[in-house]
Simulated scan of single mutants.
Amino acid sequence: MTSYPFHLINMFAERRLGGNPVVVFTTAEMPDEQTRQTLAYQMAVAETAFISNTDTLVHVHSPQYALPFSSQALLSAAEATHPNEIGLAAQVFKTHLGETWLLRQGDRWWNQMNTPHTRQSIHSALEIAEALALNPKDIVGRPLFVDCGLEQLIVQVKSQQSVLQANPQPQGLAKLAQSSKNLPQAAVWCRDDNQITLRFFSCDAFTVYEDFGSGTGAASIAGWLLASGQSAPFSLRIEQGHTIHRLVSRLSVILVEVDENRVIRVGGNAHRVGGGVIEL
């Protein structure tokens, strides 16, 4: 029997029982991919991260599949492995996309993101609106695919009511947001000055998943703004999760800073709320 210690982190949480739950396994040796996927399915949170005691490479899994990159998983891994850091402290973690810097400032961890790359969607605004169950007149600007680690379709709409209206189905979302790099993912968001309301969707062949907190999606919004003519520097406060149509919802607050060199950093509060050991 092998033991796998884990930490439960609430990421992007303004309070301990807010934000998005992420599990971080800290193991003596990295388990194989099948074991990691089994553990991720068992934990049943949006994302589960794995990091060994002898390496800084972070593996990330959803309950159903592996992910090449996740900002919230990296931030959660930083909190799980360096819980006593105070003040200003920087750590380097590795992902399948290379090294990434994480910086602690006070109570927040920040992740410096990859330079965003963009491409236009081949679908018309009408097709995008139909796939997301939106009114075509509600779409603002030009939908773009943005890649800050994961490629995502970024769609700005004119109001919070439009954000709430979004209701993609698996077949439509798969066609709309198809990517050669990762499973289809799309962000629907609106802006009121520097305050943003975000809903973030991904899908497989059967199900649409909605995330309570997507740091990579937040970075992609900043990339969309830069590609759409926004001058740097600027900062954003992104609220997510409270708009999910469930009996119980949770608020995630994601902070984005873009400096004068157009470097994007994503940050938020992380709270370790528990942990334990899984035995297999």
Score class of each variant (00 low, 15 high):
residue 50 F to I: 05
residue 109 W to Y: 12
residue 141 G to C: 01
residue 208 V to K: 01
residue 25 F to R: 04
residue 148 C to V: 14
residue 106 G to Y: 09
residue 173 L to V: 08
residue 14 E to K: 07
residue 173 L to T: 05
residue 182 N to C: 06
residue 100 T to R: 11
residue 254 I to Y: 11
residue 238 I to K: 02
residue 124 S to I: 11
residue 66 A to Y: 10
residue 191 R to D: 04
residue 80 A to E: 13
residue 259 D to V: 12
residue 14 E to Y: 09
residue 230 Q to P: 05
residue 145 F to H: 05
residue 255 L to P: 00
residue 189 W to D: 00
residue 107 D to R: 10
residue 222 A to H: 04
residue 139 I to S: 07
residue 134 L to I: 09
residue 218 A to D: 00
residue 14 E to N: 10
residue 31 P to F: 09
residue 157 V to F: 03
residue 131 A to L: 06
residue 244 I to T: 12
residue 40 A to K: 05
residue 173 L to F: 01
residue 99 E to P: 07
residue 71 S to L: 11
residue 107 D to K: 10
residue 183 L to D: 03
residue 114 N to G: 12
residue 167 N to Y: 05
residue 214 S to V: 01
residue 140 V to D: 04
residue 204 D to L: 06
residue 65 Y to T: 07
residue 225 L to R: 00
residue 2 T to Q: 15
residue 98 G to Q: 14
residue 212 F to T: 00
residue 39 L to D: 06
residue 99 E to C: 05
residue 168 P to D: 10
residue 138 D to Y: 01
residue 189 W to I: 03
residue 186 A to D: 05
residue 96 H to W: 10
residue 232 A to M: 14
residue 6 F to D: 11
residue 178 Q to T: 09
residue 273 V to P: 08
residue 101 W to L: 15
residue 201 F to R: 01
residue 116 P to K: 13
residue 238 I to M: 07
residue 12 F to T: 01
residue 185 Q to P: 04
residue 18 G to A: 13
residue 198 L to A: 02
residue 72 Q to C: 08
residue 213 G to H: 01
residue 261 N to E: 15
residue 55 D to M: 07
residue 185 Q to Y: 03
residue 236 L to Q: 03
residue 24 V to K: 04
residue 12 F to S: 02
residue 215 G to Q: 05
residue 104 R to H: 14
residue 128 I to A: 04
residue 150 L to G: 02
residue 19 G to P: 05
residue 2 T to P: 09
residue 180 S to P: 01
residue 114 N to L: 15
residue 73 A to N: 11
residue 118 T to F: 09
residue 112 Q to Y: 13
residue 155 V to W: 02
residue 261 N to H: 15
residue 88 L to D: 15
residue 42 Q to I: 10
residue 54 T to W: 11
residue 40 A to Q: 01
residue 247 L to H: 14
residue 195 Q to P: 03
residue 74 L to P: 00
residue 127 E to F: 01
residue 156 Q to C: 09
residue 215 G to M: 07
residue 152 Q to F: 05
residue 41 Y to F: 15
residue 150 L to T: 06
residue 261 N to M: 14
residue 64 Q to W: 14
residue 162 S to Q: 03
residue 46 A to E: 11
residue 257 E to I: 11
residue 174 A to C: 13
residue 118 T to D: 09
residue 105 Q to P: 09
residue 192 D to Q: 10
residue 65 Y to F: 13
residue 199 R to K: 04
residue 29 E to R: 08
residue 249 S to F: 11
residue 193 D to Q: 14
residue 52 S to C: 09
residue 72 Q to V: 11
residue 172 G to S: 12
residue 134 L to V: 03
residue 209 Y to N: 05
residue 85 E to S: 15
residue 270 A to M: 11
residue 147 D to G: 03
residue 183 L to P: 03
residue 184 P to S: 09
residue 254 I to L: 10
residue 77 A to Q: 09
residue 228 S to G: 04
residue 139 I to H: 07
